[in-house]
Amino acid sequence: MKNSPSFFKPDGLLVYAVLYLTFIYLPVLFLPLFSFNDSTYITFPLKDFTLKWYDKMINSPDMHEALFNSIKVGLTVAILSTILGLLAAKAVTRYRLRGRGPLVSFIMIPLVIPEIILAISLLILISQAEIPLSLWTVGFSHLLLCIPFSMLILISRMEGFDRSLEEAAMDLGENAWMTFWRVTFPIVLPGIVASLLLTFTISFDEFVLAFFLSSTDPTLPIYIWSSLRFPTKIPAILALGASIFIISFFVVSFSEWVRRRGVKLEPTSRI
């Protein structure tokens, strides 16, 4: 007992870090917990273990439709915003542009505007232009929200790598397109993957814009929102939340694994 202080050095910061992690994990961990609880009511004490909520989730066509809508919108938004972000990042980092500062600030505005204001102003414009609400209007609003994120990620990736690498490729005989394809793209690739993942996640989880700008086709957050009002539907929603969590965990782990393998595999002397 006397010796223990030399083994265990109390580190205030480490203790704090553990407490902090507890704070951010604890509430979230109750979601999967109650998804296995054999009761409609989200209260303690816990009842028996059950998988029926997962069964209910699997057999809910409404939920599947919403999920499918969200994936459709998310994929489209992720790809478009990453392409636009890549072009814009290249413009900003590789060319001397007049008014670069104000232009970039303008593109970043969606980051510093409350989402609800973005949502209602788009709603007003769309209704005044008499465009029908649909998943397209939701997707467009998500695109606005995601472009700044894509651009920030890709700008930092582009700035991080040495411009003389591109010059070296030109010097060794490649034209602008092949230089992009053989040098810029592979080096920026981790940034592209990060941008795709982040923007998909943002769109997939976005509620306020979708709430104002969708019509009869719900996205997943809209479906969750409307289900939260019905206590009987909640356990199945928790099961869905837990499933999304597990799937995204595997997706992120897999993409990290691919990225690391990719770095190792690529440097073969393939031409």
């Binding site: 509430p27 979230v28 109750f30 979601l31 996640t201 989880d205 509620f207 997943l220 957050p221 969750i224 929102w225 939260l228 929603i237 928790l238 939340g241 837990a242 999304i244 969590f245 995204s248 965990f249 992120v252």
Partner: peptide
């Protein structure tokens, strides 16, 4: 990584 709505619901 879980839904924002569910995090609030938690």
């Amino acid at each position: 990584w879980t839904s924002y709505l569910l995090r609030v619901f938690a």
